[in-house]
């Protein structure tokens, strides 16, 4: 009695195994796996096309100039760390780095402060003109910056004269804030709308002023939204080129992107390729760090912005 089922089972097993083998074979040769292998190959090729240029850039930053010119694919014979100190000191990347850090930190802070105040009011209060103000900010998302360049150039000059400023950076900070407002207001308005209103109402009922309610209750609640839009602005402003190019022509206050473009042009005369590549790496590092730390958030924010906007 006991043998028969065993044999039966083995036969079944055999059949199952054979069926599996058949499907495996079919999958292997005609269907899913082939497609899977094919897609892996294409995806790897594109991944290499993305990684290789950056890897080459980092490798090149450690080479000597003759190595860069004559052996572009070769590994550096010895690592030239002094390329980085030369870029930092002589090519003034250090001072451009400091200027960029000052401008971006001030303008991101002000952007977050002003846009969250505006967004909170637009999202939570009914008053005549509410919609108009919102649409006016949205219009700023449509306009290309280059149309405003000429008037902005003269405006910043007049602004500096008016306040007796010899340094362009304060005006540049305000311009950065102004051009970051549309997207930040848009993003934070929908964020404030999505927050529960009970907490704010409870705070008001408890006798907190509108100001206390905003800074003490609503802003902490909005932290995820502020973080997302903050990272977005840090990257956008760190990478900004056209505004400083036009509004900040003084080499002493150059920002990183300006400094890089300037070095790349100067390059033609001085042939200091290695310092230029070191400068590229130095400029890339903060972006890389922010990207690795906040990759998911950034991706979500950027694509959500695209779909809603």
């Amino acid at each position: 009695m006991s043998a028969e089922p065993t044999i039966q089972a083995t036969a079944d097993d055999f059949e199952v195994a054979e069926a599996n083998y058949r499907t495996d074979k079919r999958a292997l040769f005609s269907g899913e796996n082939l497609f899977g292998g094919f897609s892996q190959i294409l995806l790897i090729i594109w991944a290499l096309m993305v990684i290789l240029p950056f890897a080459w850039m980092i490798m090149t930053a450690f080479k000597t100039d003759p190595e860069i010119i004559f052996h572009p694919w070769a590994w550096p014979e010895s690592f030239q760390w002094n390329n980085f100190s030369r870029a930092w000191e002589e090519a003034r990347i250090g001072s451009y780095f400091k200027n960029t850090l000052i401008v971006v930190s001030c303008s991101v802070f002000l952007t977050l402060l002003f846009s969250s105040m505006t967004a909170y009011v637009l999202a939570r209060f009914d008053f005549p003109g509410n919609r108009w103000i919102f649409y006016m900010f949205m219009a700023g998302l449509m306009f290309p910056v280059f149309l405003a360049l000429v008037p902005l150039f003269f405006l910043v000059r007049d602004f500096n004269n008016l306040f007796g400023l010899t340094n362009n950076l304060p005006a540049l900070i305000l311009v950065y804030v102004a051009y970051s407002l549309p997207f930040s207001v848009f993003f934070l308005t929908s964020f404030f709308k999505s927050l529960p209103s009970e907490l704010a109402e409870a705070a008001i009922v408890d006798g907190a002023s509108h100001y206390r309610t905003f800074f003490g209750v609503m802003l902490p609640l909005a932290r995820p939204g502020l973080l997302a839009i903050g990272i977005f602005n840090v990257l956008g402003q760190w990478n900004q080129f056209i505004l400083p190019l036009v509004l900040n022509p003084n080499p002493d206050t150059y920002l990183l992107t300006q400094g890089l473009a300037f070095l790349a042009i100067q390059q033609g005369y001085q042939n200091d390729y290695s310092a230029l590549f070191a400068a590229l790496v130095i400029t890339m590092i903060p972006i890389l760090v922010v990207y690795i730390l906040f990759q998911r958030k950034l991706e979500a924010g950027l694509t959500a912005g695209a779909l809603k906007g």
Binding site: F114, M117, L155, A178
Partner: peptide
């Protein structure tokens, strides 16, 4: 609203 509106009017709308 004032700070954002002021900056936006001066540095975006006016130019």
């Amino acid at each position: 609203l004032a700070p954002a509106l002021l900056l936006y009017a001066v540095f975006v709308l006016y130019p």
